[in-house]
Design a protein around this nucleic acid. Structure first.
Lengths: 239, 239
DNA sequence: CATGCAGTGACTGCATACGATTTTTTCAGC
DNA sequence: GCTGAAAAAATCGTATGCAGTCACTGCATG
C-alpha cells in the first residue's frame, strides 16, 4: 500500500468512473504500477471501493489513451512500450511541441510571462532538493504551455505524449537524467517572452530531442522473461 | 434506417463494445449522425441489439477520442466543434503530417512506390465520377502514409485528426472543395519516391494548409443561437 | 523426461436492476 | 394567459449476477 497520496490533476472528476480513470492514469504515469502488470477489474474495484463496472469502464478509456493494453477475454495490462515505440512517442511529441510553440505567437502577455518565469524558478529550486517533484513540475511546464495555446486537441495530445514519455523515461532512462531540464526550460521561456517564436520553437525542439536522446540512446532493458532468465541460466551452467 | 451498410474499418472488433465503438465512430465521421445530436444510451443499445452497458462504454471511449461530448447526468452528444476548434485540429494535423513525412525517409521501396502511385491514380479517376469515394480515398491516402512510418502513436493521431478534419470539412467546408486533392497527392508521392524528403514534407505541409484554407478561411457559421437571433432582434427594433 | 490432454479456477463479457439526477409536463395561483 | 412550483417522465450512474472463455495445473502417455 503506497504511503503518500497520489498527485491530483486539474479536473474535479464528477463521476466515480472519471475518478478511477484519473487515479489509474496517475498511478501508471508515476510508475506505481509497473509496465506489463495485470490490472484485474476486481482488484481495481476493490481498491477504489467500487464495482467492477467502474473499473472496467476506466480501463477501456485508458486503453484508448494507450496507457493500458486490453487483451480480449484476458484482461487489462499496464502498457509496456518497447524501446522502439518509445522513440516513436518522442518523435510525435517533438512535432507536437514544436507546433505548440509556433502557436503561442502573440499569446504571451506580461501576466503569463510572470507565471512562466515563476514556474521555471520553482522547478530549478526543486532540481537538487526534491527530484520527484522536479520531474512533476517539468511535465507540468509543458502542459501549461499547451494550455496557453487554447487548442484543446493540442492540449490533449501533448498531455498524452508527455504522460507516455515520462513512462518511457522511467522504463528506459538512466536515473538522474532529468535534472538538467530547468535551465533549458528557462531559455525557452525567455525566447518566448521576447517574442522570438522561431527561436523558441527551435529550442523546444532540441530540448525534447535531447531528453529523448539522453534516455533512449544507449540504455537497453530486457523485454522478455527469457532474456532476464538467460543470465541466471548461464550461472547455473557454470556452477 | 440507413439503406447502405456503414463502411467497415480494419480491425475485426472482437467484443460487442468494440463493434459498437467502431460503428459509432464511423457513423459520426460519415456524418450520419449530425454534430450536436443526442446519443442516448438506450437508443444506441437498442439499435445494436445490446444493453446500455455496451453503449455506455463505447460512448466513454469515443469521448476520450474527442468525437463525442459527455455531459454529466445529461448524456452524450456528437461533438460539435466550433470553427475555431476546427482550425486548431487542422493545425495539429499539419504538424503531425509534416513529422510523418520526415519519418518516411528511407522507407519507400519500389513495391511501396507502386502502391502509392496506384492509390493516387485511383483517386484521380474517382475525382470526377464518384465524389464520395474520392473523398474516402483521399483520407485513406494519408492513413496509408501514416501506416508506413511504422509508428503506432503517429498512426493513431493521424487517424484521429484525419477523421475529425473530414468532420470539420463537412460542417464548414464548401461543397466540391475536395476534388483538387489528387494532383497534390501525386506531387507528394513523386517527391517521396525520389527521396526528396524535405520537399515532400513541404508539399504535404502546404497541401494540408490549403485544404484547411479552402474550407475554413472565408466561411463563417454562427455558433451561438444569440448570434443568429441578433439580426432578427435588430430587424424588430428597426420595424 | 518431454509432450499432450482434460479438469479446475479465475476472470472477463454482457445483461439486468435499482437509486439518483435532470428535464419536461402539469396545474394551481395571480 | 402567464408565472412558478410540484409531480412525472426520461435518462444517467452504479452494483450485481450469470454465462462464456481462457490460462494453468496435474496426470497420463510415448
Amino acid at each position: 500500500m503506497p504511503s503518500e497520496k497520489p498527485a491530483k490533476t486539474a479536473a474535479p472528476a464528477r463521476t466515480r468512473t472519471e475518478k478511477v480513470h484519473q487515479a489509474l492514469r496517475s498511478a501508471i504515469i508515476e510508475q506505481r504500477l509497473a509496465p506489463g502488470s495485470r490490472l484485474p477489474e476486481d482488484a481495481i474495484g476493490e481498491s477504489f471501493g467500487t464495482s467492477r463496472t467502474i473499473a472496467r469502464e476506466a480501463l477501456g478509456r485508458l486503453a484508448v489513451e494507450g496507457l493500458v493494453d486490453l487483451k480480449p477475454n484476458r484482461g487489462a495490462f499496464v502498457a509496456n512500450p518497447s524501446l522502439e515505440e518509445g522513440r516513436g512517442i518522442f518523435h510525435v511529441r517533438r512535432a507536437l511541441e514544436r507546433a505548440m510553440m509556433l502557436d503561442l505567437s502573440g499569446k504571451i502577455d506580461p501576466a503569463i510571462a510572470g507565471r512562466l518565469r515563476a514556474m521555471v524558478a520553482r522547478e530549478a529550486a526543486m532540481a537538487s532538493t526534491n527530484e520527484p517533484e522536479a520531474i512533476r513540475l517539468a511535465g507540468e511546464f509543458h502542459l501549461t504551455l499547451a494550455q496557453l495555446t487554447g487548442n484543446p486537441l493540442l492540449l490533449r495530445y501533448v498531455t498524452e505524449t508527455v504522460s507516455r514519455c515520462s513512462m518511457v523515461l522511467a522504463m528506459y532512462g538512466r536515473p538522474h537524467s532529468t535534472d538538467c531540464g530547468a535551465r533549458e526550460h528557462a531559455a525557452i521561456v525567455e525566447s518566448l517572452i521576447a517574442g522570438r517564436i522561431e527561436e523558441a520553437a527551435e529550442l523546444m525542439d532540441r530540448h525534447v530531442a535531447e531528453v529523448a536522446g539522453r534516455a533512449l540512446l544507449n540504455t537497453r532493458v530486457e523485454q522478455d522473461i527469457r532474456e532476464v532468465l538467460a543470465s541466471y541460466a548461464q550461472a547455473i551452467q557454470h556452477a
